[in-house]
C-alpha cells in the first residue's frame, strides 16, 4: 500500500493502482464503444417497435370499441333513441369530469407541482 501525500488525507491506495489505471481505462473505452453503438441501435429499434405496437393496439382498440358500441346501439336502441344515447354519453363525460376534479383536489392537498400533475394526468 502506498500513502498519498495530500494535505490531511489519510487514505491509502493499493500498490501500483495509479500506474495501472490508464491502461485499464484505455482497454475499457476501446471495448466500450461498439457496445454503446449496439445499445443505441437496440434502444432505437426497441423504441420504434414499441411505438408501432402502441399505435396498432390503440387503432385496434378503437376499432373494437366502435364495433362494440355499434352492437350496443343495434341491440338496445332504435334510431329514435340516438339522442338519448348521446345524453348518456354526456353523463359519462360528466362522471369523468368529476373524477378529474377529485384528482385535481387531491393533487392540491398533496402539494404536487404543475409538472407532476401533468405527468399524473397524462397517465390517468
Amino acid at each position: 500500500m502506498k500513502e498519498n501525500n495530500l494535505h490531511k488525507n489519510n487514505f491509502k491506495v493499493p500498490e501500483n493502482y495509479f500506474d495501472n489505471f490508464t491502461n485499464e481505462i484505455m482497454n475499457k473505452v476501446q471495448t466500450e464503444e461498439p457496445r454503446k453503438r449496439f445499445q443505441l441501435n437496440a434502444m432505437k429499434y426497441a423504441t420504434v417497435a414499441a411505438s408501432v405496437l402502441i399505435v396498432l393496439s390503440l387503432t385496434f382498440g378503437l376499432v373494437k370499441f366502435n364495433d362494440n358500441n355499434k352492437d350496443q346501439f343495434s341491440k338496445n336502441f332504435d334510431t329514435n333513441n340516438i339522442v338519448n344515447t348521446n345524453n348518456n354519453n354526456i353523463i359519462v363525460d360528466n362522471h369523468y369530469t368529476d373524477e378529474y376534479d377529485e384528482l385535481l383536489d387531491w393533487s392540491a392537498t398533496m402539494g404536487l407541482t404543475d409538472e407532476e400533475l401533468y405527468i399524473l394526468l397524462s397517465i390517468y
Binding site: 487514505f11 491506495v13 493499493p14 495509479f18 489505471f21 490508464t22 484505455m26
Partner: peptide
Amino acid sequence: EAAFRSLVDLYKTQVYWQARRNVVVH
C-alpha cells in the same frame, strides 16, 4: 486516442481523490 491517454494521466489522481474523499470506500 493518444490525447485521451494523456488526459487520463493528467487527471486520474484529481478524479480519484475527489471521489475517494466523498465516498471513502476505495
